[in-house]
Amino acid sequence: MGLNRAKYAHISRYVEKLKPNREALRDLRKQFPSQSQSTLLSIFSLEYQKRMKRTHAQHHTSEACKTYYQRYLSGVMNNAAAPVLFELANEMDLAPSLMARIVLEKFLQHRDQVTPSKPVINGMLRDPSQIPDRVLANQVYQCTVNDCCYGPLVDCIKHAIGQEHEILLREKLQSKKLSFLDEDQLRAKGYDKTPDIILEVPVAIEGHVIHWIESKASFGDEYSHQCYLQDQFWSYWNRFGPGLVIYWCGFIEELDCHRDRGILLKDCFPEDITTLHCASTTTDNGKKR
């Protein structure tokens, strides 16, 4: 569902005061019942990630990390069964998975007297049973399963949703009997940076010729769309011609401003597709041209 800038700003201001947990998401749905759950979840995730980027430096100073670790130790000493890390993350307005990462890294540093590598930390966050402390393993697990925006569980869910929408896109194209090459086929042909779909025969959508389609299982906000334009869409346009971007969770309506330059935005698979066959005309002798 498309939103104008004013409506998006209204939602983003409301999101600013929310914590990244399921209770906040329920609150968001009650506040904006006209928006789909997938749209609100995507907006929530985008805006919270921006907030985390803005405050990243203050949470990762040596003093801050030391304070978080000491508060964790004091908390579990008083009650090891309490969600100490999760509550600390909410208090400090830091994503639970990011708080878990900070404390886990400090724990391993104290234990091994050396800074752990990122692969080691990532492996323990994905599988807390690898953490050599049962209390900390449980605390990290609580953070990762209750974090709606960060962490290995969220990454898996986002990847699965992205794959699901790419499959949906291919099924829609097949139902229209449109010939296309997907990303895997294009890479097999030697392309290194490609859209999800290249149409072997261009089509017209709302009067615009389309050569490629990109699927985004997210909401298209100002920041992410500008990044995609710079890193992906314009390079696709340069190589393959005009194309279509589907933001399945909606987008800010004003961003659909490059149609005349060759990039069309939609929030669903278009039904009004004009194929070469449909667009062809008939000559006087009955042959198509």
Rank of each mutant, 00 (worst) to 15 (best):
D27P: 02
D27H: 14
L46P: 00
D27K: 11
D27R: 02
I11Q: 03
A57M: 07
R26Q: 15
K53Q: 15
E23S: 14
E16G: 02
Q49E: 15
P20Y: 06
R13E: 12
R26V: 12
P20V: 05
E47D: 14
E16H: 12
R13C: 12
Q35C: 14
E16F: 14
Q37D: 12
T39E: 05
Y14L: 03
A24V: 01
Q49D: 09
S38R: 09
I43V: 15
R29T: 10
F44K: 02
H56S: 03
E47P: 04
Q31W: 07
K19W: 06
M52P: 01
S38C: 12
H56D: 15
R13L: 11
D27W: 02
S36D: 04
T39S: 06
D27A: 08
S36N: 11
S42F: 07
S34E: 15
R51A: 11
R54S: 12
S12Y: 02
P33G: 06
K19N: 11
S34G: 09
H56L: 13
H56T: 00
E47G: 02
R13F: 10
R51E: 13
S36I: 01
Q49S: 12
S34Q: 15
F32D: 03
E23G: 10
H56C: 04
I11E: 02
R54A: 12
S45N: 08
